[in-house]
Every structure is written in C-alpha cells, then in structure tokens.
Simulated scan of single mutants.
Amino acid sequence: MHWIDPDCLPEVKGTVERFLLNPHGEIDGFVITDNTQASVLVHTPPHMEAELTRQINAGDVVGVRGVRPRKADLIAAVAVTTASGADIVDRGPDHDREHPRIEKKKMSAEGTVRLSLFGPKGELRGALLADGTVVRIGPKEAEQVAKLLAPNAKIAVKGDGLETKHGRVLHAKEIGSGSGDLRPIKEAKPKPKPGHDPKHEAKPRHDRAEHA
C-alpha cells in the first residue's frame, strides 16, 4: 500500500484522453484534459493496470489524487476515482508479478512531440507524439537528447516496440530531428560509487610459478 494517504491530497479532475505504455507494453499512466482544456500527464505504476483498464475508458471523467514532482509537469497518482465513484488506490505491487512476455518488432516513427513523458520522480523518460505514438528512452539517456523530447520539437526515432489495443510504443535506439539525421543513443555509463577510485582496484596477481 502507498505510504501516502490519498485523502490528504488535492484532487484534479479531467477527461481521460488516452492511456500511455511503457517499453513492456504495460500501462503506466494516462493523459487527461482538465477544465481549462489543458493536457495533464498522470503517472500510474504498472501494477494498477488491470483495475484501471477494467474501470476506466477514454472519455470518462476521473479524479486523480497524487503528488507533483518539483522538476516536471506531472501527477504521480496515489488514487484515481472513476466516473462511477469507485476508488482505485495504489496498494503496492504483487511481489510475484512479472513483466508480460512480448514479442517486439523493429519500428520507426517521425513527427512532432506533443508532451514530454516523465517518471514518478520527474525524470524525463520519453515523449508522446502528435500521432499518439509513445517514445520511450531510459532516463539517463533521455537527458542527453532532452531538446528533442520537448513539446513541439520535430523528432524521428528507430528502435523496437509493439502495438496494443491501447496504442503504440517504441523503445528508441536511434534519434534525430528527422529521418536523415538519426544517430545512435549512447547508453549512459553507471556512475562510480562515492569514494571509489578505479586506479586503486586490486590487480590480478601473476604467480611466478605459473610462468616457470
């Protein structure tokens, strides 16, 4: 169960436009239109997928209670109230839950970014294109190409992905401002642990007897 009591959080109401997918094809959020006609990005953990898709459809008016990270325009949902008044609460993942086994295929996409996509702590994780394609990139790699993932940016990507009844998602391996400008996305190297100096790593010993 989520450690935050949803009843203590303000509620944002809006009309569900569409669900969003992670690279595994799982739903990890949705977009709502609020009473000012602005699009609001809502993040939900994948373990809430079954309840969300069972009780919510595009066009439904829902209420969202959650927290807003400092560095992104996003609501990380703790609870969602359906049009019928039912509450879907983040009660934590099933520890036996695994990612679905899916067969990805080579995919490409090109167009204009409609919304930047973020993780629950506000980390940049991709973009929603104007045609509805969800582009996903690891948070460390996304920082390197943040300008291409900003709203109204022109973008082209290649990678692998899949299509489901809830939409199309592509995990980008190449990116550019157009199909003739594609370049590989460099995988971010893990940062060294604090206090760790690779120069002081123990070197393998070579026993003289081995070379006698």
Rank of each mutant, 00 (worst) to 15 (best):
Glu26Ala: 13
Glu103Phe: 04
Val157Ala: 02
Arg91Trp: 07
Arg97Val: 06
Lys173Met: 07
Leu128Tyr: 08
Arg97Asn: 09
Leu117Arg: 07
His43Glu: 12
Pro10Gln: 07
Glu51Leu: 11
Pro100Asp: 14
Val64Thr: 11
Arg70Phe: 14
Glu187Ile: 10
Lys147Met: 10
Val40Pro: 03
Glu26Ser: 13
Thr133Cys: 11
Pro120Asn: 08
Asp5Gln: 04
Leu170Arg: 05
Pro190Phe: 03
His2Ala: 12
Gly66Ala: 08
Ala146His: 14
Glu51Lys: 09
Ser177Val: 07
Leu162Tyr: 04
Phe30Asn: 06
Arg68Lys: 15
Val157Glu: 02
Gly111Ala: 11
Gly111Thr: 06
Leu115Gln: 12
Ile175Thr: 05
His99Glu: 12
Lys106Gln: 12
Gly92Ser: 10
Asp181Leu: 03
Leu115Trp: 00
Asp87Lys: 12
His171Gln: 12
Val89Glu: 10
Ala83Cys: 00
Arg205His: 12
Lys191Asp: 07
Gly132Ile: 13
Glu51Met: 07
Ala72Met: 03
Asn152Asp: 15
Ser39Pro: 00
Pro69Ile: 07
Ala79Asn: 06
Asn22Ala: 05
Val89Met: 06
Gly66Pro: 10
Asp131Leu: 10
Asp60Phe: 05
Val135Asp: 01
Glu103Trp: 03
Pro151Ile: 07
Ile4Asn: 04
Pro6Asp: 00
Asp197Gln: 04
Leu20Ile: 06
Lys203Gln: 15
His99Gly: 03
Glu51Cys: 01
Lys173Asn: 10
Val31Asp: 08
Ala130Thr: 12
Pro184Ser: 09
Leu124Gly: 01
Gly111Cys: 09
Asp181Lys: 14
Leu20Pro: 03
Ala127Gln: 01
Arg54Cys: 03
Lys104Leu: 05
Asp73Thr: 13
Asp94Tyr: 11
Lys189Leu: 13
